Simulated scan of single mutants.
Amino acid sequence: MTIGFIGLGNMAKAMIGGILEKGLMAPNEIIGTAATEETRKKVADKFGIQVRTSNEAVAKEADIIILAVKPQYLKVVIADIMDSVDDKKLVVSIAAGKTISWLSNEFEKPVKLIRVMPNTPALVGEGCSAVCRNDLCSDEDYHFVKELLESFGKAYTVPESMMDVVVGVSGSSPAYVFLFIEAMADAAVEGGMPRKQAYEFAAQSVLGSAKMVLDTGKHPGELKDMVCSPAGTTIEAVHVLEQEGFRGAVMDAVTACIEKSKSL
């Protein structure tokens, strides 16, 4: 079994790192290509994988082809590889906005397809990936790809109709969280805390809070109430956030992200 990555950016590197760390594949079972020799060399040196100079070469050799390029480049990439993809190969796309139907039309023939929406916390082994497939993809193929995805975080099966929603709530949402952490840290700095320490306090609080939601299974509102003592500091802060439209702004941001994904 050989896995081929077309595109060796941050997400591809996160995937390769997780796969190798969990021992699911050996370095000599992974090949990849990127637009520049510099990127190819860096990834080969870091992970010990094989690299090729063309998309077509990767597609010919790989049993599983992972399209790890931005949506605007997919049409060109598929044109490069379509003659090298037959009904035995499995194609996995991680591009936002490009549906299985769109991918099938671009290949102009029946192809086993899996669509994945990962996110950047995969870089630290805490990714969240949504997965769906077409009818040509076998259960065995599907479960193997899910296992690969779970090497760098969680992977959940969703209907394809939810993929744009996944982009809004998971794929793009790390950026919202980074803004929140930065804003909290800025306020702490204004209060006199050294910036490095402020980032550590803010980030650890977000990490711990997320873990409480996942580990306890409690509703976020219930966990919020546990922190809000009567006439205390926390409820005062929550009052300001509500007054400033915090939840509405977040909902509007996620909705805008979903709509943008639909338009890609």
Score class of each variant (00 low, 15 high):
residue 132 C to E: 01
residue 122 A to R: 05
residue 105 N to S: 12
residue 100 I to G: 02
residue 178 F to M: 12
residue 169 V to L: 15
residue 104 S to F: 03
residue 163 M to N: 04
residue 127 G to P: 00
residue 181 I to W: 06
residue 174 P to E: 11
residue 90 L to E: 00
residue 161 S to H: 06
residue 161 S to I: 09
residue 131 V to R: 02
residue 155 A to R: 03
residue 156 Y to N: 09
residue 172 S to W: 00
residue 140 E to T: 10
residue 89 K to S: 06
residue 176 Y to R: 12
residue 180 F to D: 06
residue 80 D to M: 10
residue 155 A to I: 05
residue 172 S to A: 15
residue 179 L to K: 11
residue 99 T to L: 09
residue 97 G to Q: 09
residue 143 H to V: 07
residue 137 C to S: 15
residue 184 M to D: 04
residue 117 M to T: 07
residue 124 V to P: 01
residue 113 L to R: 05
residue 174 P to L: 09
residue 139 D to E: 15
residue 152 F to T: 07
residue 164 D to E: 07
residue 120 T to P: 02
residue 185 A to W: 00
residue 99 T to A: 07
residue 182 E to M: 05
residue 103 L to V: 09
residue 160 E to C: 10
residue 147 E to K: 15
residue 149 L to M: 15
residue 116 V to H: 04
residue 110 P to D: 08
residue 112 K to Q: 13
residue 125 G to A: 13
residue 132 C to L: 13
residue 165 V to C: 09
residue 165 V to K: 06
residue 112 K to F: 03
residue 146 K to L: 12
residue 180 F to L: 14
residue 123 L to H: 05
residue 156 Y to G: 01
residue 165 V to T: 14
residue 154 K to P: 00
residue 102 W to A: 13
residue 130 A to S: 15
residue 118 P to E: 08
residue 127 G to F: 01
residue 167 V to W: 00
residue 118 P to I: 12
residue 117 M to Y: 06
residue 118 P to Y: 11
residue 152 F to D: 03
residue 182 E to G: 08
residue 136 L to Q: 14
residue 89 K to L: 04
residue 100 I to T: 12
residue 130 A to Y: 00
residue 133 R to A: 14
residue 147 E to R: 15
residue 112 K to W: 02
residue 182 E to T: 11
residue 159 P to I: 10
residue 185 A to E: 01
residue 102 W to R: 09
residue 94 I to Q: 03
residue 98 K to T: 13
residue 156 Y to P: 00
residue 101 S to K: 15
residue 93 S to I: 05
residue 142 Y to F: 15
residue 126 E to H: 14
residue 90 L to R: 03
residue 177 V to P: 02
residue 143 H to D: 10
residue 170 S to P: 00
residue 153 G to C: 11
residue 101 S to T: 11
residue 115 R to C: 05
residue 142 Y to T: 13
residue 174 P to C: 09
residue 183 A to K: 06
residue 144 F to C: 10
residue 111 V to P: 01
residue 129 S to V: 09
residue 153 G to E: 08
residue 107 F to G: 08
residue 119 N to G: 11
residue 120 T to C: 10
residue 109 K to R: 15
residue 128 C to Y: 03
residue 106 E to T: 10
residue 115 R to H: 11
residue 176 Y to G: 11
residue 95 A to G: 02
residue 118 P to F: 07
residue 124 V to I: 15
residue 81 I to R: 03
residue 90 L to Y: 04
residue 160 E to N: 08
residue 143 H to P: 02
residue 141 D to R: 07
residue 102 W to M: 13
residue 150 E to K: 11
residue 177 V to I: 14
residue 122 A to T: 07
residue 94 I to D: 00
residue 90 L to V: 12
residue 89 K to N: 04
residue 138 S to R: 15
residue 130 A to P: 01
residue 123 L to F: 04
residue 98 K to F: 04
residue 90 L to D: 01
residue 138 S to Y: 14
residue 132 C to N: 08
residue 158 V to N: 03
residue 176 Y to S: 09
residue 174 P to V: 12
residue 112 K to A: 11
residue 169 V to E: 06
residue 121 P to G: 13
residue 165 V to M: 09
residue 94 I to N: 02
residue 158 V to A: 08
residue 81 I to C: 06
